[in-house]
Amino acid sequence: EDYYQILGVPRNASQKEIKKAYYQLAKKYHPDTNKDDPKAKEKFSQLAEAYEVLSDEVKRKQYDA
């Protein structure tokens, strides 16, 4: 799945936009606030993985290549 789609940001998003999108979605899908939703944990880990790659310039360049 596309990391940009997961975070809901365009491919040319700035680091600030990526961070903002991640924090909004992380708050929304955090397992502690969605105890009754088994998919929230999965969504949250996808968000974390996408953010880890896109927030790191080197990893992001490799991902975009």
Score class of each variant (00 low, 15 high):
Leu54Lys: 00
Ile6Asp: 02
His30Trp: 10
Val58His: 09
Ala13Trp: 01
Arg11His: 14
Lys16Tyr: 15
Tyr29Glu: 04
Val53Tyr: 03
Lys35Arg: 11
Asp36Asn: 11
Ile6Thr: 07
Ala40Trp: 10
Lys35Leu: 12
Gln15Trp: 07
Asp2Glu: 04
Lys61Tyr: 05
Glu17Val: 08
Ala48Thr: 14
Asn12Tyr: 08
Gln62Ile: 13
Ala21His: 06
Ile18Lys: 00
Leu25His: 04
Asp37Tyr: 06
Tyr4Thr: 00
Asp64Ala: 02
Arg60Asp: 01
Asp37Arg: 05
Val58Thr: 10
Asp56Tyr: 02
Leu47Asn: 01
Lys20Pro: 01
Ala13Phe: 03
Tyr29Val: 06
Gly8Glu: 06
Lys41Val: 11
Leu54Phe: 01
Pro31Lys: 12
Leu47Ser: 03
Pro31Asn: 13
Tyr29Ile: 06
Lys59Gly: 03
Glu17Tyr: 07
Asp37Lys: 05
Pro38Leu: 09
Lys39Pro: 05
Lys27Gly: 09
Val58Glu: 14
Leu25Pro: 00
Thr33Gln: 13
Arg60Tyr: 01
Arg11Cys: 07
Tyr63Ala: 02
Lys16Thr: 15
Tyr4Cys: 01
Ala40Gln: 07
Pro31Ser: 13
Asn34Glu: 07
Gln24Lys: 13
Ala13Gln: 01
Leu7Cys: 02
Lys20Ile: 15
Gly8Asp: 05
Lys20Gln: 15
His30Asp: 15
Asp37Cys: 06
Lys28Arg: 12
Lys59Trp: 04
Lys43Val: 10
Lys16Ile: 15
Lys19Ala: 15
Ala40Cys: 08
Val58Cys: 10
Asp37Gln: 05
Arg60Phe: 01
Lys35Asn: 12
Lys20Gly: 08
Lys43Ile: 12
Ala48Gln: 14
Glu17Met: 13
Arg11Lys: 12
Glu49Leu: 12
Lys27Pro: 06
Pro38Glu: 10
Tyr29Ser: 04
Lys35Pro: 14
Glu42Asn: 11
Val58Phe: 13
Leu47Arg: 02
Gln15Val: 12
Ala26Arg: 15
Asp56Glu: 03
Asn12Gly: 06
Lys41Thr: 09
Ser55Asn: 06
Thr33Ile: 12
Lys61Asp: 07
Lys39Ala: 14
Leu7Phe: 03
Arg60Leu: 01
Tyr23Glu: 15
Pro10Lys: 13
Lys39Met: 12
Ile6Gln: 04
Val53Lys: 03
Asp36Gln: 08
Glu1Pro: 14
Glu57Thr: 11
Ala48Trp: 13
Glu57Gly: 05
Glu1Ala: 13
Ala40Leu: 11
Tyr51His: 04
Gln5Trp: 13
Gln62Ala: 14
Ala50Val: 07
Tyr3Val: 02
Lys35Asp: 12
Lys61Gln: 11
Lys27Ser: 13
Lys39Tyr: 13
Gln62Ser: 08
